Deep mutational scan, measured.
Amino acid sequence: MGFKLLSKLLVYLTASIMAIASPLAFSVDSSGEYPTVSEIPVGEVRLYQIADGVWSHIATQSFDGAVYPSNGLIVRDGDELLLIDTAWGAKNTAALLAEIEKQIGLPVTRAVSTHFHDDRVGGVDVLRAAGVATYASPSTRRLAEVEGNEIPTHSLEGLSSSGDAVRFGPVELFYPGAAHSTDNLIVYVPSASVLYGGCAIYELSRTSAGNVADADLAEWPTSIERIQQHYPEAQFVIPGHGLPGGLDLLKHTTNVVKAHTNRSVVE
Protein backbone atom coordinates (compact mmCIF):
# COMPACT_ATOMS: atom_id res chain seq x y z
CA MET A 1 0.00 0.00 0.00
CA GLY A 2 1.47 3.42 -1.01
CA PHE A 3 2.09 6.05 1.66
CA LYS A 4 -0.34 8.52 0.10
CA LEU A 5 -3.11 5.92 0.07
CA LEU A 6 -2.29 4.92 3.64
CA SER A 7 -2.41 8.55 4.80
CA LYS A 8 -5.80 9.06 3.21
CA LEU A 9 -7.06 5.82 4.75
CA LEU A 10 -5.94 7.02 8.20
CA VAL A 11 -7.87 10.27 7.72
CA TYR A 12 -10.97 8.32 6.70
CA LEU A 13 -10.70 5.94 9.65
CA THR A 14 -10.19 8.81 12.08
CA ALA A 15 -13.27 10.57 10.77
CA SER A 16 -15.29 7.34 10.91
CA ILE A 17 -14.31 6.68 14.52
CA MET A 18 -15.27 10.23 15.48
CA ALA A 19 -18.62 9.92 13.78
CA ILE A 20 -19.39 6.74 15.73
CA ALA A 21 -18.12 8.12 19.02
CA SER A 22 -20.09 11.37 18.72
CA PRO A 23 -23.01 10.90 16.34
CA LEU A 24 -24.79 14.09 17.34
CA ALA A 25 -21.79 16.38 16.97
CA PHE A 26 -20.24 14.93 13.85
CA SER A 27 -21.54 14.83 10.33
CA VAL A 28 -18.35 14.05 8.43
CA ASP A 29 -18.44 14.89 4.75
CA SER A 30 -18.82 11.68 2.76
CA SER A 31 -18.13 13.35 -0.58
CA GLY A 32 -14.51 12.22 -0.75
CA GLU A 33 -11.02 12.20 0.69
CA TYR A 34 -9.17 15.15 2.16
CA PRO A 35 -7.83 17.27 -0.73
CA THR A 36 -4.09 17.02 -1.37
CA VAL A 37 -1.63 19.45 -2.92
CA SER A 38 -1.68 17.70 -6.30
CA GLU A 39 -5.44 18.17 -6.57
CA ILE A 40 -5.59 21.93 -5.98
CA PRO A 41 -4.16 24.34 -8.58
CA VAL A 42 -2.59 27.49 -7.16
CA GLY A 43 -5.31 30.14 -7.03
CA GLU A 44 -8.08 27.69 -6.22
CA VAL A 45 -9.46 26.63 -2.84
CA ARG A 46 -11.20 23.50 -1.60
CA LEU A 47 -13.52 23.15 1.39
CA TYR A 48 -13.75 19.94 3.41
CA GLN A 49 -16.54 19.45 5.93
CA ILE A 50 -15.21 17.91 9.13
CA ALA A 51 -18.32 18.18 11.28
CA ASP A 52 -21.68 19.90 11.39
CA GLY A 53 -20.82 23.57 10.98
CA VAL A 54 -17.05 22.98 10.79
CA TRP A 55 -14.95 22.99 7.63
CA SER A 56 -11.30 23.20 6.75
CA HIS A 57 -10.21 25.29 3.79
CA ILE A 58 -7.28 24.11 1.73
CA ALA A 59 -5.25 26.19 -0.72
CA THR A 60 -1.86 25.84 -2.40
CA GLN A 61 0.94 28.30 -3.01
CA SER A 62 4.22 28.32 -4.94
CA PHE A 63 7.28 28.94 -2.80
CA ASP A 64 10.95 28.49 -3.72
CA GLY A 65 10.08 26.48 -6.81
CA ALA A 66 7.71 24.05 -5.09
CA VAL A 67 3.98 23.98 -4.40
CA TYR A 68 2.73 23.57 -0.84
CA PRO A 69 -0.73 23.06 0.66
CA SER A 70 -2.07 25.24 3.46
CA ASN A 71 -5.00 24.64 5.79
CA GLY A 72 -7.38 26.96 7.59
CA LEU A 73 -10.68 26.59 9.42
CA ILE A 74 -14.27 27.78 9.01
CA VAL A 75 -16.74 27.54 11.91
CA ARG A 76 -20.42 28.39 11.83
CA ASP A 77 -21.50 30.97 14.40
CA GLY A 78 -25.28 31.18 14.20
CA ASP A 79 -26.13 32.65 10.81
CA GLU A 80 -22.55 33.81 10.28
CA LEU A 81 -19.14 32.25 9.78
CA LEU A 82 -15.87 32.64 11.66
CA LEU A 83 -12.77 32.21 9.50
CA ILE A 84 -9.48 31.02 10.92
CA ASP A 85 -6.50 32.10 8.80
CA THR A 86 -6.38 33.40 5.26
CA ALA A 87 -5.76 31.18 2.25
CA TRP A 88 -2.15 32.40 1.80
CA GLY A 89 -2.37 35.43 -0.45
CA ALA A 90 -4.88 37.85 -1.94
CA LYS A 91 -5.85 35.71 -4.94
CA ASN A 92 -6.37 32.59 -2.84
CA THR A 93 -8.31 34.46 -0.17
CA ALA A 94 -10.64 36.00 -2.75
CA ALA A 95 -11.18 32.50 -4.14
CA LEU A 96 -11.86 31.28 -0.59
CA LEU A 97 -14.62 33.84 -0.05
CA ALA A 98 -16.17 32.91 -3.39
CA GLU A 99 -16.05 29.20 -2.54
CA ILE A 100 -17.63 29.81 0.86
CA GLU A 101 -20.45 31.78 -0.76
CA LYS A 102 -20.97 29.00 -3.31
CA GLN A 103 -20.87 26.02 -0.95
CA ILE A 104 -22.05 27.36 2.41
CA GLY A 105 -23.95 30.53 1.57
CA LEU A 106 -23.38 32.29 4.89
CA PRO A 107 -21.39 35.50 5.39
CA VAL A 108 -17.90 35.52 6.88
CA THR A 109 -18.07 38.29 9.48
CA ARG A 110 -14.91 37.71 11.54
CA ALA A 111 -11.49 36.24 10.87
CA VAL A 112 -8.61 35.31 13.17
CA SER A 113 -4.99 34.97 12.04
CA THR A 114 -3.05 32.49 14.17
CA HIS A 115 0.41 33.97 13.57
CA PHE A 116 2.19 36.64 11.56
CA HIS A 117 3.51 34.68 8.57
CA ASP A 118 2.08 35.30 5.12
CA ASP A 119 0.28 31.95 4.98
CA ARG A 120 -1.90 33.22 7.87
CA VAL A 121 -2.23 36.96 7.18
CA GLY A 122 -1.70 37.15 3.41
CA GLY A 123 -5.15 38.14 2.17
CA VAL A 124 -6.24 40.11 5.25
CA ASP A 125 -6.69 43.19 3.05
CA VAL A 126 -9.09 41.20 0.84
CA LEU A 127 -11.08 40.19 3.91
CA ARG A 128 -11.17 43.76 5.19
CA ALA A 129 -12.40 45.03 1.81
CA ALA A 130 -15.17 42.43 1.94
CA GLY A 131 -16.36 43.78 5.30
CA VAL A 132 -14.81 41.05 7.43
CA ALA A 133 -13.52 42.13 10.86
CA THR A 134 -9.97 40.80 11.14
CA TYR A 135 -8.36 39.83 14.45
CA ALA A 136 -4.99 38.70 15.78
CA SER A 137 -3.07 38.88 19.02
CA PRO A 138 -1.12 42.10 19.72
CA SER A 139 2.07 40.09 19.22
CA THR A 140 0.94 38.87 15.80
CA ARG A 141 -0.07 42.37 14.73
CA ARG A 142 3.28 43.78 15.84
CA LEU A 143 5.33 41.03 14.18
CA ALA A 144 3.32 41.30 10.96
CA GLU A 145 4.09 45.02 10.83
CA VAL A 146 7.80 44.40 11.39
CA GLU A 147 7.79 41.74 8.66
CA GLY A 148 5.96 44.01 6.23
CA ASN A 149 2.99 41.63 6.07
CA GLU A 150 -0.70 42.53 6.12
CA ILE A 151 -1.93 43.48 9.59
CA PRO A 152 -5.28 42.36 11.06
CA THR A 153 -7.28 45.32 12.36
CA HIS A 154 -8.35 44.22 15.83
CA SER A 155 -6.33 42.92 18.79
CA LEU A 156 -7.21 39.76 20.71
CA GLU A 157 -6.59 40.37 24.39
CA GLY A 158 -5.86 37.81 27.10
CA LEU A 159 -3.42 35.68 25.10
CA SER A 160 -0.05 37.05 26.17
CA SER A 161 1.14 34.29 28.55
CA SER A 162 1.74 30.60 27.87
CA GLY A 163 -1.40 28.64 28.71
CA ASP A 164 -3.80 31.57 28.22
CA ALA A 165 -7.16 30.72 26.64
CA VAL A 166 -10.10 32.92 25.63
CA ARG A 167 -13.49 32.15 24.15
CA PHE A 168 -14.12 33.74 20.77
CA GLY A 169 -17.60 32.96 19.50
CA PRO A 170 -17.87 29.22 18.74
CA VAL A 171 -14.17 28.50 19.38
CA GLU A 172 -11.56 28.73 22.08
CA LEU A 173 -8.27 30.42 21.26
CA PHE A 174 -5.23 29.08 23.11
CA TYR A 175 -1.69 30.37 23.36
CA PRO A 176 0.53 27.37 24.16
CA GLY A 177 3.78 29.31 24.17
CA ALA A 178 6.41 29.74 21.49
CA ALA A 179 6.74 26.99 18.89
CA HIS A 180 6.79 27.50 15.09
CA SER A 181 6.72 31.19 15.97
CA THR A 182 6.59 33.10 19.22
CA ASP A 183 2.99 34.19 18.61
CA ASN A 184 1.33 31.01 17.27
CA LEU A 185 -2.22 30.36 18.48
CA ILE A 186 -4.20 27.11 18.63
CA VAL A 187 -7.93 27.00 17.89
CA TYR A 188 -10.33 24.49 19.43
CA VAL A 189 -13.95 23.84 18.45
CA PRO A 190 -15.49 22.32 21.61
CA SER A 191 -18.79 21.38 19.96
CA ALA A 192 -16.96 19.06 17.56
CA SER A 193 -13.69 18.16 19.37
CA VAL A 194 -11.73 19.67 16.47
CA LEU A 195 -8.26 21.05 17.20
CA TYR A 196 -6.66 23.37 14.66
CA GLY A 197 -2.95 23.41 15.38
CA GLY A 198 -1.84 25.73 12.62
CA CYS A 199 1.86 25.69 11.82
CA ALA A 200 2.76 24.60 15.35
CA ILE A 201 1.63 21.08 14.37
CA TYR A 202 2.99 18.92 11.53
CA GLU A 203 1.24 16.33 9.40
CA LEU A 204 2.37 12.72 9.90
CA SER A 205 4.20 12.51 6.57
CA ARG A 206 6.48 15.40 7.44
CA THR A 207 9.95 14.36 8.53
CA SER A 208 11.82 17.68 8.45
CA ALA A 209 11.27 20.82 10.48
CA GLY A 210 11.02 23.09 7.45
CA ASN A 211 10.92 26.84 8.06
CA VAL A 212 12.14 27.39 11.61
CA ALA A 213 13.59 30.87 11.11
CA ASP A 214 11.17 32.34 13.65
CA ALA A 215 10.77 29.22 15.80
CA ASP A 216 11.70 28.60 19.41
CA LEU A 217 13.02 25.05 19.07
CA ALA A 218 13.80 24.70 22.77
CA GLU A 219 10.30 25.73 23.88
CA TRP A 220 8.32 24.02 21.11
CA PRO A 221 8.03 20.56 22.77
CA THR A 222 6.85 22.17 26.03
CA SER A 223 4.24 24.18 24.14
CA ILE A 224 2.95 20.99 22.53
CA GLU A 225 2.69 19.41 25.98
CA ARG A 226 0.47 22.31 27.01
CA ILE A 227 -1.78 21.67 24.02
CA GLN A 228 -2.04 17.98 24.91
CA GLN A 229 -2.84 18.77 28.53
CA HIS A 230 -5.42 21.43 27.66
CA TYR A 231 -7.25 19.43 24.97
CA PRO A 232 -6.91 15.71 25.77
CA GLU A 233 -10.40 15.14 24.37
CA ALA A 234 -9.55 16.45 20.89
CA GLN A 235 -10.42 13.90 18.21
CA PHE A 236 -9.62 15.58 14.88
CA VAL A 237 -6.37 17.55 14.59
CA ILE A 238 -5.63 19.84 11.64
CA PRO A 239 -2.00 20.85 10.97
CA GLY A 240 -1.10 24.08 9.24
CA HIS A 241 -0.06 22.18 6.13
CA GLY A 242 -1.05 18.73 4.90
CA LEU A 243 -3.33 15.95 6.03
CA PRO A 244 -5.21 15.99 9.36
CA GLY A 245 -5.26 13.17 11.88
CA GLY A 246 -5.56 12.62 15.63
CA LEU A 247 -3.59 13.62 18.69
CA ASP A 248 -0.71 11.51 17.40
CA LEU A 249 0.22 14.53 15.28
CA LEU A 250 1.33 16.28 18.47
CA LYS A 251 3.79 13.57 19.44
CA HIS A 252 5.01 13.33 15.85
CA THR A 253 5.68 17.07 15.75
CA THR A 254 7.66 16.88 18.98
CA ASN A 255 9.76 14.04 17.56
CA VAL A 256 10.52 15.98 14.36
CA VAL A 257 11.44 19.13 16.27
CA LYS A 258 13.69 17.25 18.71
CA ALA A 259 15.40 15.39 15.86
CA HIS A 260 16.08 18.68 14.11
CA THR A 261 17.45 20.21 17.30
CA ASN A 262 19.71 17.22 17.93
CA ARG A 263 21.08 17.34 14.38
CA SER A 264 21.76 21.06 14.74
CA VAL A 265 23.71 20.46 17.96
CA VAL A 266 25.81 17.72 16.33
CA GLU A 267 26.53 19.86 13.28
Rank of each mutant, 00 (worst) to 15 (best):
G2H: 15
G2D: 14
G2K: 11
F3C: 07
K4G: 04
S7L: 08
S7N: 10
L13S: 14
T14M: 08
A15Y: 12
I17A: 13
A19E: 15
P23F: 09
A25W: 14
F26Y: 11
S27G: 12
V28I: 14
V28D: 11
S31C: 07
G32Q: 11
P35M: 08
T36N: 15
T36G: 10
V37S: 15
I40M: 15
G43M: 04
E44Q: 12
L47W: 02
Y48Q: 12
Y48P: 05
Q49I: 08
I50Y: 04
D52Q: 10
T60I: 14
T60P: 05
Q61N: 07
F63L: 13
D64P: 07
A66E: 15
V67F: 15
V67P: 15
S70E: 04
N71D: 05
N71V: 02
N71K: 05
R76L: 12
R76H: 09
R76D: 06
G78S: 09
D79I: 10
E80D: 09
E80K: 09
L81N: 01
L81V: 10
L81P: 02
I84F: 13
A90T: 11
K91W: 10
K91I: 13
N92V: 01
T93M: 02
A94R: 14
A94P: 04
A95T: 11
A95G: 08
A98F: 12
Q103A: 12
I104D: 01
L106I: 12
T109P: 06
T109G: 11
R110G: 08
R110Q: 12
A111F: 06
S113C: 06
S113T: 06
S113W: 04
D119N: 05
D119I: 02
D119S: 01
V126Q: 06
A130I: 07
A130T: 10
A133M: 15
T134N: 01
T134W: 01
P138H: 09
S139N: 11
L143D: 00
N149L: 14
E150L: 04
E150I: 04
I151P: 04
I151Q: 03
P152T: 03
P152H: 04
T153Y: 13
H154I: 09
S155Y: 07
L156S: 03
E157C: 07
S160P: 07
S161R: 14
V166W: 05
V166F: 07
R167D: 12
G169C: 06
P170Q: 06
P170D: 03
E172M: 04
E172L: 03
A179R: 02
H180D: 02
H180Y: 07
S181L: 03
T182S: 12
T182K: 13
N184H: 03
Y188P: 01
P190R: 09
S191N: 11
V194E: 03
V194P: 03
G197T: 03
G198T: 05
A200Q: 00
I201K: 03
I201D: 04
L204G: 12
S205H: 09
S205I: 08
T207R: 12
S208P: 08
S208W: 09
A209K: 08
G210H: 05
D214R: 05
D216V: 09
A218H: 13
A218G: 13
W220Y: 07
P221R: 07
S223C: 03
I224Q: 00
Q228L: 13
Q229S: 14
H230K: 15
P232S: 10
E233G: 12
E233K: 14
E233D: 13
Q235T: 14
F236L: 09
H241F: 00
H241M: 00
G242V: 05
G242C: 06
G246L: 04
G246M: 05
L247T: 14
D248W: 06
D248L: 07
L249R: 01
L249H: 02
T253K: 03
T254L: 14
N255I: 10
K258P: 05
A259I: 10
H260S: 13
T261N: 13
N262G: 12
V266I: 09
E267M: 10
